[in-house]
Amino acid sequence: MVMFFLKRMGEALVTVWGVVTIVFFITRILGDPITLFVPIGATNAQIAALTHSYGLDLPLWKQYIHYVIDILHGNFGKSFIFGYSALQVVLQRLPATILLASTALFLGVLSGTIAGAVAALKKGGIAELTIMAVAVLAQATPTFWLGIMFILWFAVHLHWLPAGGYGTLSNLILPAATLGVFVFSSLARLLRSSILDILQEDYIRTARAKGLYPTTILCWHIARNALIPITTMVALLTGELLGGSVVTETVFGWPGIGRLTIQAIQASDFPVIQAAVFIDAALFVLINLSVDLLYQFLDPRIRSRG
């Protein structure tokens, strides 16, 4: 168990290092770092000074070493817009993103689980048809458009909720619901098909032959097995939510990392873009690591292997 944990930790660190390297590759080789890292409108003297202070005049391998050392110190450079540490700029926006993503995840997982289970257990009924139709439609709906439609209906037309902003619960509802719909559709579809697969399993027949109550079969025999694909999906969705929130945050003016990234891109604030990508990737790696550990408890087959 400890060995497994250490091994996974090591792999996670390698992944983070890989992310850092890819970002380096993209910004220094794919793009022209001097134009990227120097604010627009700088004079030639300023360009020369900045090029030197960022070490952009050094050979590539030296730049890479400096870059990795800087990141180890949490130093992504100063934000051009805000004038202070890019990492700090990003970290200040982190709580808003986490609040939005976790609320959306909670709403989506709750509704998606119930809907998926109902659709599977009432197979062939009108409930299944309705739930699946909604899920298929929701899956095809772009989140940002759904957000705009929510604003159009609940804010502009009905005046029930604010169209954007941050701070109160009413500000949270629309963006969280928008992202939640996306979680709902993925989860409802996955859970329905996993439960239908599980119902075909021999051990469910055994459970029935034991005369167990349907609730016992559902809560123990089905649910315990269905938790495994759900966990995988939730981990995947969390990653998508962190990225997917970019558009939702933009639509609702939500002050999270996603909107910050867009602002940074529009202003060519590369230190901030780098820091945002790094934090997002690090979060994602962390989530995957926790999910791997969670599997240990969910699936005894993995436990004994690890």
């Binding site: 792999e11 992310v19 890819i22 970002v23 993209i26 990653g239 998508e240 873009i273 990508v277």
Partner: peptide
């Protein structure tokens, strides 16, 4: 593995921002 640990949207934004 490394690419999959990038949130896709972030990777896309980064590359578009650079290119």
């Amino acid at each position: 593995d490394i690419q999959l640990s990038f949130p896709l949207m972030m990777l896309t934004l980064l590359v578009v921002a650079v290119l």
